[in-house]
């Protein structure tokens, strides 16, 4: 059994390494091309392969904007849902609500994509003005992505909150704490490492999400942090371009791997930041 687990562990590491190598190999081709420089890649904001412009920020900006919108929806709502389920709801209410929430996680992302495009976007255009909000926009994609991530964050956070020993809650209540004070100021901080892990996973899901942004946020790189504008994310761009038939070995083709590598890096950095955050602020209980 132990040997089996070991093999699985090694396999995971092996797969990760091969992904990085595959990405790195092709990306190297891209960066070795005389037409691109690292300075241009990281330092400019236009991404137009036809015109020989490879500024990754045009895509990173959209990824960050949609992800931030998504997290602004998913983290507060997910935490509120988790706190409600673990600290307020009676067991019966919990048994009904939890599976309902988890249904949200089972909806295919392509459905979410069209939900954003055909339902949320028209509402946004009515509310904020059709002249200000485009048919494709990052806000709609981000909001719906938030709804998609919400059950992930709430269910993982709820597990973490439920794992906090009852004695801590009793301590808080015995001090004359209200339910809200006990949940937010004692239980939540004690569960922060688990809640942090949930948020980290949520961030990774948001950054990596493809279908929703490909459908609803726009099909063209646009360096902008304005959520009302259309812009293409890294994932959306890869999906669209690789959908066409790109000849192997061209710059366009290898540029996709450079984007993918960048995506990998962004996720990694966000992960590291969140881990640092959790390590700094968590309250450990025995």
């Amino acid at each position: 059994m132990e040997a089996l687990l070991f093999i699985v562990g090694v396999l995971t590491v092996f797969i990760t390494i091969s992904i990085v190598l595959t990405l790195g190999d092709q990306a190297l081709l891209f960066f070795n091309d005389p037409a691109v420089t690292l300075a241009e890649f990281f330092g400019t904001t236009q991404w137009q392969p036809q015109a020989g412009q490879f500024g990754i920020w045009a895509l990173v900006s959209a990824t960050l904007t949609t992800s931030v919108v998504a997290l602004l929806v998913a983290v507060p709502l997910g935490l509120a849902a988790a706190l409600y389920l673990s600290e307020y709801a009676s067991p019966r209410v919990r048994d009904i609500l939890k599976p309902l929430l988890e249904v949200l996680a089972g909806i295919p992302t392509v459905v979410y994509g069209y939900f954003a495009l055909l339902f949320v976007t028209p509402i946004l255009r009515t509310l904020l003005g059709a002249d200000r909000v485009g048919v494709y926009n990052m806000l709609s994609a981000g909001l719906v992505m938030g709804i998609m991530i919400l059950p992930l964050i709430s269910s993982m956070s709820e597990d973490a909150l439920s794992a906090v020993p009852r004695s801590l809650r009793e301590a808080a209540y015995a001090m004359g704490a209200t339910r809200l004070e006990a949940s937010v100021q004692v239980v939540l901080p004690a569960a922060l490492s688990g809640v942090g892990a949930a948020v980290i996973l949520g961030v990774s899901r948001a950054v990596g999400e493809t279908m929703i942004v490909a459908i609803a946020s726009g099909a063209g790189p646009n360096f902008s942090f304005n959520p009302l504008e259309a812009a293409e994310t890294m994932t959306g761009h890869i999906a669209r371009i690789s959908g066409g038939d790109l000849p192997y070995g061209t710059l366009d083709y290898s540029s996709l791997f450079a984007i993918a590598l960048m995506l990998f890096l962004v996720t990694l950095v966000l992960n590291l930041i969140s881990q640092w955050f959790v390590a700094k602020f968590r309250e450990q209980y025995e």
């Binding site: 020993p165 004695s167 801590l168 009793e170 301590a171 808080a172 209540y173 015995a174 001090m175 004359g176 704490a177 209200t178 004692v186 901080p189 004690a190 309250e283 450990q284 209980y285």
Partner: peptide
Amino acid sequence: PVEVRRRIGMVFQRPNPFPK
């Protein structure tokens, strides 16, 4: 009941300090 618990404090069987 919150007011009651403020006026009547409690110490438990196992020490349960806050993780603070």
